[in-house]
Design a protein around this nucleic acid. Structure first.
Length: 571
RNA sequence: CGGGGCAUAGCGCAGUUUGGUAGCGCACCUCGCUUGGGACGAGGGGGUCGAGUGUUCAAAUCACUCUGCUCCGACCA
């Protein structure tokens, strides 16, 4: 490819609509253009990267037993009504009608489609396991599309569905995909973590989110550097922190005028924050009061509270009247003296504390020397892990301290069990001639998001720094002055030689000044730049610049190809 | 859905307060000159000022309505 033929409209400035660095760079480097909110065209450079990512995905899917198919974007509503998700999916789903008034949707996912596709003809356990996948546009009518390809309404997704005869088989398929995903993102040159996720309502199986580590990511994750543990902040399990055993002093009520926050209490009483107990009052959808208690320096994790309290679906901050009805006192609360029947959830770490400070349920009064295992009635409270992970907390697997980082979820693997085979009545006959539901799994990768995440993770003030495997071109050959026919000729020779080595190379034969071309090369992010100058011709050498490190090498004509191939291996 | 901001040439912006001939930089086209990090000179093309309605002799500018974009939040996982 020659740069003079390439449609790559680079911009001098960042478009004002872009906020996130990957979005800005994709616009500026001419990778994508927006058609509408959350809907994009991919220009040649962007599309080349997309295709390289897809190719890596294909290779790993195929070598793990996947078979590629293509299913419709436009799906009839009947399938979704049958599974019960037509109503459930709600406004997220793009719906449309044909001229006869028949209802369709633009598929946000394809469980219904694939299950109905195979159910008529996949009849025997002998045909299992089966793994089918596609790389397809998907649609979600996001409330607020943003961040370019990161949260868009139309997006490219690889989705594979596995069908097994039993749970053991399903777990093997799951493991295969888990391994394939690790390989895919490694090959893409990304720093990522498989993050433990729970299946929520689906239950039973397991799930991991593959999260690319990036400071601008939408999700916050905790991970361990000593072992492989990683989990999203809301899901991270936490071990109980044991406090040093102390002699229990007698409970005592003290005046704490106007000290309604932990900060004020700890300063007024001059105690370390780890010796205080913080209260947070919630109400659920039914109006039930839920009091949560954590150590003063900890934060409550609402998701964990929801899991701990039977029947609670959503939480909001409690009304003061509800607190008063339970004999509580906002700003000065503890479980001591709260009306029976109130739901009280205490973090397990709190139960380990000795001689702590907690509210007295009276205005301007706190208790000191509270020892929960003596002073709280364990029969009336729920004790469990309800706190939010924070940097430095011990890893639940190895005990070393956890680190926090932000990340971008690029892939997700999920066991579905028989949820969809049951609701869509997809069965086969097993060895005993008995009819059974398929045990399914689904495995998605956001292709555009992977591209965005790669840029998020690999850029500097000059532009993108592509990992070699997904760079639109691996090498760019730049004659310093393309109007000079000697330089252009020499450059074309080098270009052809590299091409013959199987290297994905582009010749920047534009007649612009060197500075313009260098800046574009840096912006677009080719991993290696070959610079051809009069000096190169005179000395019969090749000058090479590594985008990532900025290193410059000069090689002789007879060795440069091997050198470039060698260098590319590490980029 | 709540709250803020914005909409003028391909991109970035000024002009709006105080109504009166549509501007600047970059990009684009032509010619010249230049070529190792976004040169220079000369000439040129490109706009229903997001849409609609109203006020006015006169609206990019004032008023109302709508649409789109964007940020924060809620929502989603």
């Amino acid at each position: 490819m020659r740069a003079t033929q390439l449609y790559a409209p680079t911009l001098r400035d960042f478009p004002s609509e872009a906020e996130l660095i990957s979005h800005k760079l994709m616009m500026k480097a001419g990778l994508i253009r927006k058609a509408a909110g959350g809907i994009y065209s991919y220009l040649p450079l962007g599309w080349r990267t997309i295709r390289k990512i897809e190719q890596i995905i294909r290779e790993e899917m195929d070598s793990n037993g996947g078979q590629e198919i293509m299913m419709p974007i436009m799906q009839p509503s009947e399938y979704w009504k049958e599974s019960g998700r037509w109503a459930v999916y709600g406004p997220e789903m793009m719906k449309l009608k044909d001229r006869h008034g028949r209802e369709f949707c633009l598929g946000p996912t394809h469980e219904e489609m694939i299950t109905t596709l195979i159910r008529a003809e996949l009849r025997s356990y002998k045909q299992l396991p089966l793994m089918l996948y596609q790389i397809q546009n998907k649609y979600r009518d996001e409330i607020r599309p943003r961040f370019g390809l990161m949260r868009s309404r139309e997006f490219i997704m690889k989705d594979l569905y596995s069908f097994d005869k039993d749970v053991d088989g399903m777990n093997i398929s799951y493991q295969k995909m888990y391994d394939a995903y690790s390989k895919i993102f490694t090959r893409c040159g990304l720093k990522f973590r498989p993050v433990e996720a729970d299946n929520g309502a689906i239950g039973g199986g397991h799930s991991h989110e593959f999260t690319v580590l990036a400071p601008n990511g939408e999700s916050s994750i905790a991970y361990c550097e000593s072992c492989e543990y990683a989990a999203s902040d809301e899901k991270a399990e936490l071990k109980t922190i044991k406090a040093e055993v102390e002699e229990m002093k007698p409970l005592e009520k003290v005046e704490t005028p106007n000290c309604h926050t932990i900060e004020m209490v700890k300063d007024f009483l001059n105690v370390p924050i780890e010796k205080t107990i913080k209260a947070v009052a919630f109400q659920d959808d039914d109006g039930r009061l839920i009091l949560a208690f954590v150590r003063g320096d900890h934060e409550v994790n609402e998701i964990k509270i929801l899991n701990a309290v039977e029947g609670a679906l959503h939480l909001h901050m409690a009304e003061e009247s509800a607190i008063n009805d339970a004999n509580g006192c906002a700003g000065f609360m503890s479980p001591i003296g709260i009306k029976d029947g109130t739901i009280i959830v205490v973090d397990s770490t709190v139960m380990e504390m000795y001689n702590a400070v907690a509210g007295a349920n009276e205005v301007d009064k706190h208790f000191i020397n509270v020892t929960p295992k003596r002073d709280f009635d364990e029969k009336k409270i729920i004790v469990t892990d309800i706190r939010m992970v924070k940097e430095g907390d011990p890893c639940p697997h190895c005990g070393k301290s956890l680190k926090m980082t932000r990340g971008i979820e690029v892939g997700q693997v999920f066991t579905l069990g028989d949820k969809y085979s049951k609701s869509l009545n997809a069965t086969f006959l097993d060895e005993n001639g008995k009819e059974k539901f398929f045990e399914m799994g689904c495995y998605g990768i956001g292709v555009g998001r992977t591209m965005a995440a790669a840029i998020e993770q690999n850029n500097d003030e000059n532009g993108i720094i592509w990992p070699r495997a997904i760079a639109p071109f691996e090498v760019v050959v730049v004659p310093v002055n393309a109007k000079n026919s000697d330089q252009l000729e020499y450059s074309e020779k080098i270009y052809n030689e590299l091409k013959d080595c199987g290297i994905d190379v582009i010749l920047d034969d534009r007649k612009d000044r060197a500075g313009v071309k260098f800046n574009d090369c840096d912006l677009i992010g080719y991993p290696i730049r070959v610079t051809i100058s009069p000096k190169s011709i005179n000395e019969n050498t090749i000058e090479i610049k590594i985008r990532k490190s900025g290193e410059i090498f000069v090689f002789n004509r007879d060795e440069y190809k091997e050198k470039i191939i060698e260098l590319l291996k590490n980029l």
